[in-house]
Amino acid sequence: MNRPIAPTAPRVIRWVVTTAIVVPFVWAALGLDVSLDRLVEAPGAIWSRVASMFPPDWGDISEILGKVLESVNVAWVGTIIGATLSLPLGYLAATNISPRWVTGPVRGLLSAIRAFPELVLAIMFIPAFGLGPFAATLAIGLHSIGTLGKLTSEVLEGTDAGPVEAIASAGGTKLQQLRFGVSPQAMPNIIAYWLYRFEINIRASAVLGVIGAGGVGDLLIGRLRFREWEKAGAVLIITVAVVLIIDFASSAIRRRIITGHSGTGRVSKALSLLVRPRAT
């Protein structure tokens, strides 16, 4: 039997891909003003900075908790703004629901919103609303509209057309098709995305503190600027702990919403224990 000749295409592709990765990388590495000795010293410097934060100074734990709470609040209200306003926009951007002349502009609007990081939006809001949690909330809310709107439309487009057809053939109006055919399929996933966005928004609102827009970022930057490493360590640890707890709870709830039953993870089990009726 004749042996086939090894094709050359995969090898060519491999070279093209390697070049496409290596060339920009070299360009970037050479372009950055980073000397070799600074690079070599970096791990040691990072380690000593981390070490200098321990043991943390818990002196102002009350203030830190208050600021973390503020960040969570900003994220929460921002998420609610994003969720409420993105829902109709998501329907308008879904190609299986809205006509093309609507989905086009709405999609453009959503991706234009997404292009601005929250921090840039917050800076643009300063002249109108001043520095503070209010501006941060608006920035996060606006950005969330962009991301949630896109995700919502994708969930809606992923729904099964069968039920819609069934309602249409039974004489249902367009609105009834949406209400009883599309929404029941899509809502669990959409709500799960809201919760996920809330998790992301907590980080975003913590970050907005660094320009003075309220929240825990403010505190961290201040501590670092005044070289109070132990206090910065406390801020960092509390932030990580609070966000971790919210992450775990949120992902357990998301799983519950999407699958309709609680998961097998430890957090999910603990949560389901809280609501289970007593065994008879």
């Binding site: 990072i46 000593s48 900075r49 980080r203 670092l224 932030t239 990580v240």
Partner: peptide
């Protein structure tokens, strides 16, 4: 995953 991007930046800026 809990540490936001800007916190990383601030931390590294204070270290290196």
């Amino acid at each position: 995953r809990t540490i936001p991007d800007l916190f990383w930046a601030a931390l590294f800026a204070s270290a290196v």
